[in-house]
Write a protein that binds this DNA or RNA. Structure first.
Length: 576
RNA sequence: CGGGAUGUAGCGCAGUCCGGUUAGCGCGCUUCGUUCGGGACGAAGAGGCCGGGAGUUCAAAUCUCCCCAUCCCGACCA
């Protein structure tokens, strides 16, 4: 491709609204432009990268035996009502009506759609297992689009759904995808960390996310360097036990604590350690207020709490609700309710071990001390609801966990029967008996994968594409000063193209420095320069790899072979 | 939705506090000439409803009110 005929609007300065490296470089290298918040335009150069990633995904999915489909983006409300998600997806799902008032959703995901086709076309166990996938756009009315294409309202996802006769089958399908995902990301040049994950609104049990370690990642990961435990903070658990005390149970007493509300203030006031406080927070879960109680030195993991409650929506209660359900202003809540109040309370599993605790008295400016679980209040429901942080002990081996941040590029999980039951999918087994298939579901964020590759492969001059996803394989810079030289340069370009190499040919009239700068920014792996060495007698060509500093000289006749060899080697390295 | 910030040429910004010529600078863009291996130089140009609306004033990019958009921090997810 001749650059003079290709629109590559590189930018010398950083766009003001890009804060992370990948976003900055995508804008600067002329890969994307913003249409509006959360919506991005892929320019020709950027599209090529996206297509390369898609091709890798498609190739590996097909290799795994999955079948490619293409689903409508406009999905009828009936489909969503069947599974119950017309309601539960909430405002994240973009809903529209046609001229007759019929309701649709712009698909935020396609579990229902795929379950529906399988119901239509699969009737026998002989067709199972089947793994159906597509590479298609998703629409989500994100609370906050962020970081360029990293989190956008419209994005391309590869989503796959497996259907098996039984759980063993699902395990097989799941493991195939697990391996396929590793291969896909490896081929894209990405190092990923698979972590245990929460299943979110999709439902299901077992789940693994593929994370790209990055400071700008939105996920917090907890890793154990000893046994290899890896988990998303949302799901992470730890071995934790408060040290037992031999203290005698004190009598319950009420203490005046004027304006002492936060845990820090309480520690000061009472002069004891934070975990002897019973931190009691009021949440509203699907419209109903509840209380969650954790040791005072712990944060609540809202995802775990939400799962415990089986709630769709969970948020901290507004002050008015807190006052209403506890009878006291915010800061004085506790599990010993005043007479006449009733509230569902979830206790963290450690609460029962705390002796002579301190907690809010549900009265203004008053706390209880000498609080003893079981004696002063009943532990009705307990669950692990604390947020695990760095330094907590690994749930498997007990070593200290460490924290890192990651970008979620893929997510695989066992869905179970949620959709096949809700949508009444039946196939006949060997004995002619109707059975319900079990599902798994597997997603890859394509645009996000592209951004993640840049996050992992760049330097202060620009992008350093892995060969597999580079927009072109060779960047050929012509430094020709006259028509004769231009002609000679064109010949080399044609030679490379004829050999089947993807070449971006900088035939523009610009200074060498300008062209080198653009080449570094765009980051094509192999750069060849047609300059002095070439236009002189020697007929030799300078080659430089984007990820190396040295320049080497190759004889003109050898250049095609050399490039081909480099390309093959670079691709093989990613496949290994 | 809550908190913070910003909207001036394609991009990056100054000017706004303290109202007053024809709204400026750098990059980019066009034409010509000279340059030409690490973002060249000169000359001549083109390009602005100063985010939108209402108001105050003799006079508004600048002051007031309302709206909109974008970005960052928190709650959702690939």
């Amino acid at each position: 491709m001749k650059m003079s005929r290709y629109l590559v609007p590189t930018l010398k300065e950083d766009p003001s609204d890009a804060v992370i490296t990948s976003h900055r470089l995508m804008l600067r290298a002329g890969l994307i432009r913003k249409e509006s918040a959360g919506m991005y335009i892929y320019l020709p150069l950027g599209l090529r990268v996206l297509q390369k990633i898609i091709a890798i995904i498609r190739e590996e999915m097909n290799k795994s035996g999955a079948l490619e489909f293409l689903m409508p983006e406009l999905t009828s409300a009936d489909l969503w009502k069947e599974s119950g998600r017309w309601h539960s997806m909430g405002p994240e799902m973009i809903r529209i009506k046609d001229r007759n008032g019929i309701e649709y959703a712009l698909a935020p995901t396609h579990e229902e759609a795929f379950t529906n086709v399988i119901r239509m076309i699969v009737t026998s166990y002989k067709d199972l297992p089947v793994n159906a996938y597509q590479i298609n756009t998703k629409f989500r009315d994100e609370i906050r689009p962020r970081f360029g294409v990293m989190r956008s309202k419209e994005f391309i996802m590869k989503d796959a759904y497996s259907f098996d006769s039984d759980e063993d089958g699902l395990e097989g399908s799941y493991q195939i995808m697990r391996q396929t995902y590793r291969t896909i990301f490896k081929r894209c040049g990405l190092e990923t960390i698979p972590v245990e994950a929460d299943t979110g609104s999709m439902g299901g049990s077992n789940s693994e996310e593929f994370m790209v370690a990055s400071e700008v990642g939105e996920e917090v990961l907890l890793l154990c360097e000893v046994c290899g435990y890896k988990s998303n903070q949302e799901r992470a658990t730890c071995q934790y036990q408060l040290s037992p005390t031999n203290e005698d149970e004190e009598a319950l007493a009420i203490v005046d604590t004027p304006d002492v509300r936060t845990i820090n203030e309480l520690v000061q006031f009472f002069g004891c350690s934070a975990h002897t406080f019973l931190k009691s927070l009021i949440y509203v879960a699907d419209g109903t207020p509840i209380m969650a109680v954790v040791p005072g030195d712990r944060e609540i993991n809202e995802v775990k709490l939400k799962n415990t409650l089986n709630a769709v929506d969970l948020e901290l209660a507004p002050d008015a609700v807190v006052e209403e359900v506890t009878g006291a202003p915010v800061g004085f809540a506790g599990p010993i309710l005043v007479k006449g109040k009733a509230l569902r309370i979830i206790f963290d599993t450690q609460i029962k071990t705390i002796k002579n605790a301190i907690t809010g008295a549900n009265q203004r400016d008053k706390h209880y001390k000498g609080v003893n679980p079981g004696r002063d209040f009943v532990i009705g429901q307990e669950a692990d609801i604390v947020l695990v942080v760095a330094g907590d002990r690994c749930p498997h081996c007990g070593n200290a966990l460490i924290e890192t941040r990651g970008i979620e590029v893929g997510h695989i999980f066992k869905l179970g029967y949620k959709y096949t039951r809700a949508m009444n999918v039946k196939v006949l087994d060997k004995n002619g008996k109707a059975i319900t298939p079990i599902m798994g579901c597997y997603g890859i964020g394509v645009n996000r994968t592209m951004a993640a590759v840049i996050e992992q492969h760049n330097d202060d001059r620009g992008i350093i594409w892995p060969m597999s996803v580079a927009p072109f394989q060779v960047h050929c810079i012509s430094l020709a000063k006259n028509e004769k030289e231009e002609g000679a340069a064109d010949t080399i370009y044609s030679m490379l193209v004829d050999a089947g190499i993807e070449v971006l040919y900088d035939d523009r009239t610009a200074s060498p420095g300008f062209k080198f700068g653009d080449a570094d920014l765009i980051g094509i792996p192999i750069r060849i320069t047609l300059g002095k060495a070439f236009f002189g007698d020697s007929s030799s060509i300078e080659v430089k790899l984007r990820n190396k500093d040295e320049k080497i000289i190759i004889a003109k006749d050898m250049i095609v072979d050399y490039c081909k060899k480099q390309i093959v080697q670079m691709l093989q390295k990613l496949n290994a």
